[in-house]
Amino acid sequence: MANSSLKLLCSSLNKLKINYIMQRQNSRYQPPRYRPPHWFVPKERVMTDEMLTQENRQFLEEVRQDKMNVQTALESPLSNSEPVATTQWDPFTRRVGLIARKIGNYPLWSKDGKRFQTTLLQVVDNHVIKYIPPEEFNPMVVKKPVWKEKKRLGALLVGSETIDPTIVTKEYCGLFDSVGMLPKRHLCRFMVSPHAALPTGTPLTATHFRRISRCNEALGIQRYACIPWCHQDSQETWQHSWRVLRGVKILRINTKHNVLWVLGVGIPGETGAMCYMFDTVLPLRKHKTAPPFPTHLPTDDLPLEYYDESIHPFEEPTISFEED
C-alpha cells in the first residue's frame, strides 16, 4: 500500500515537471573551488552513544563549567599591557573585524519621523584565537599575485560562540588548546596590519565599532539548497555562497548584550546566520578619526546604548515639528 502510494506520489510529481527546477538549479551550481586554509580542520565528529555513568557525566559537566568560568573570568590581556606599547592608528591600518550573528529586524525612526528598517546583529563571545604574522602567513588563494611578494598584512583568527568540547573533533579542539581557549563554533580570519595584532584571548565586543555611523562591510553566508530532491539532512551539504555588502551603516549599539543595529534588511543570511564584519574600505565612508584601536577595552562604566545622531531613541519625548 505504501509502495503504490509512493509510486503515485512520484508520478504526480513528475507531471509537475520537477526536471525544470533541477535544470535551473544545476546551471547555477558551481562546485566550491577552494582548498581549505592550513589551519582548517574537520570540525564535526560522529557522535556515538557513549556509555557513561551518571557520576562520570556529572564530572564532565563540572569540568566543562570550570573551564567556562575560567575563560569568562579571564580579563582582556590588553588591559594589562600598557597602551603606550600599541602604535597609533593611521588611515591605512586594517584592524580586526567581528563575527556577528543576525538575530532579526525591526524598525527604528529618525528624528524627521522617517522609518528605517534595521537589522540586529549580535556579537556573541568573540575571542582572538591566534595571530599569524605576515612572514608565516601563506594563503592558498590570493586575488592579486603581487600581494604574495609584498606580504604586509598578518592574519588574526577570531572565533565566536564557545561550544562544548565533546561535540567536536580532537583536532579541532587542538587548534584552541594550543592557545588555551575553549573551542568556538565559528572561526574567521581577518587581515590585519602587524601593529593591529592582538594577543590571544582578547575578547572583542560590539563597541569595537564604537564610532556610530562609521560604516563597515559585512560578509555573510547565504545558504540555499542546491538540489531539492536529494536526501539532505545535515547542513554541511548545503551550498554556501558569500555575499559582500559594502558600506553598511551602524545606527545603534547596545553594550550589555553586544548588539549592533545596522541599516537595511539586505544583510546576507537568514535569522541566525553568521556574518563577518570589517571596517569599510570605501573611500567616502572610511574612518576619518581614530576608532578604538586596536580594539575597545571592555570597561564597566559604559553607557548602555549608543545612538547615531539621526536616530530618535525611544526614551525621548515625541517628535514635533516647529512652524516655519
Binding site: 502510494s5 503515485l8 506520489l9 504526480s12 507531471k15 509537475l16
Partner: peptide
Amino acid sequence: FKNLFNKLMPA
C-alpha cells in the same frame, strides 16, 4: 488517495 491527490494537484 488518488481522488484527493487529483483534486489538489491537477495534472
